[in-house]
């Protein structure tokens, strides 16, 4: 989703939008794409993609297919495919993904593990 576009306004079929004046506490489980611009505490898990806005504050573990992270994340992030960390991001936790891009200015304090993309592995 983010690889070719990299633009939050181009996210299609959004299932959930957590706006900037919203605080979500607990275990949030989704099926589709999720946009977070507000505060999230607990855990966030979806089969779709996650977009974390520049002003978002997350104190949660995150699991998703792809992710674009621009805000502050305190917690481990586990992404199946592509993860894009933009210059405004502050991540305090371990990250795991199969493809990664980190923009200049981003802060990443944690262990980074690259996992093979399952589909590509089967092809080769």
């Amino acid at each position: 989703m983010f690889k070719s576009q990299g633009d939050k306004e181009k996210i299609k079929e959004v299932e959930t939008i957590i706006g900037p004046s919203i605080k979500v506490k607990g275990n949030f489980n989704g099926q589709g794409n999720i946009v977070v611009e507000g505060i999230l505490e607990g855990s966030l898990k979806t089969n779709g993609d996650v977009f974390i806005g520049d002003k978002a504050k997350i104190a949660a573990t995150i699991e998703a297919r792809e992710a674009r992270i621009g805000g502050e994340v305190m917690g481990n992030v586990k992404i199946k495919k592509y993860m894009e960390v933009v210059g405004t991001a502050k991540i305090f936790g371990d990250i795991e993904c199969s493809s990664l891009s980190i923009e200049r200015g981003a802060i990443l304090n944690g262990k980074c593990t690259m996992i093979p993309d399952k589909k590509e592995e089967i092809k080769s």
């Binding site: 959004v14 959930t16 706006g19 806005g53």
Partner: peptide, 23 residues
Amino acid sequence: YIKTKGGRKFSNLNPSSNQSFFS
């Protein structure tokens, strides 16, 4: 659908506007 003051119309799905949506 949550709309807080200062939120723009939802029509352009701009995440920076003060609107939230959950199913």
